[in-house]
Amino acid sequence: MNLITPEFGLIFWQTIVLLVLIFLMAKFAWKPILSAVKKREDSINGALDAAEKARLEMENLKASNEKLLAEARAERDNMLKEARSIKDKMIAEATEDAQEKANKILTNAQQSIEAEKKAALAEVKNEVATLSLEIAQKVVMKELASKEDQMKLVNNMLEDVKLN
Results as ranks from 00 to 15, higher is better:
151 M>E: 15
18 L>Q: 13
78 N>M: 05
4 I>Y: 04
6 P>R: 02
113 I>N: 09
104 K>P: 09
89 K>P: 10
12 F>N: 08
120 A>G: 02
21 L>H: 08
8 F>I: 13
127 E>R: 08
11 I>T: 11
99 Q>L: 13
16 I>Y: 02
137 Q>K: 11
52 E>L: 00
132 S>L: 06
31 K>C: 09
152 K>Q: 11
147 K>H: 01
71 E>V: 00
149 D>C: 03
135 I>K: 07
116 E>H: 03
116 E>V: 00
64 S>A: 14
68 L>E: 12
57 E>L: 06
17 V>I: 15
122 A>I: 03
124 V>Y: 02
114 E>K: 07
25 M>E: 15
116 E>Y: 01
142 K>P: 04
69 L>D: 10
26 A>N: 15
4 I>L: 13
138 K>C: 06
31 K>Q: 15
109 A>C: 10
91 I>M: 00
65 N>Y: 13
53 K>L: 11
151 M>D: 13
29 A>Y: 00
114 E>H: 08
100 E>H: 02
28 F>Q: 06
126 N>M: 03
94 A>Y: 01
23 F>S: 13
46 G>P: 00
99 Q>E: 13
43 S>M: 09
97 D>C: 03
95 T>K: 05
45 N>V: 12
23 F>A: 13
21 L>G: 15
8 F>V: 14
149 D>M: 01
40 R>Y: 11
77 D>L: 04
154 V>L: 04
118 K>G: 07
82 E>V: 06
36 A>P: 06
26 A>L: 05
71 E>F: 01
155 N>R: 09
25 M>C: 05
44 I>S: 07
84 R>Y: 02
105 I>A: 10
40 R>V: 03
83 A>K: 01
18 L>C: 08
39 K>T: 05
35 S>C: 07
5 T>I: 08
78 N>D: 15
113 I>Y: 12
105 I>V: 13
113 I>Q: 12
27 K>V: 04
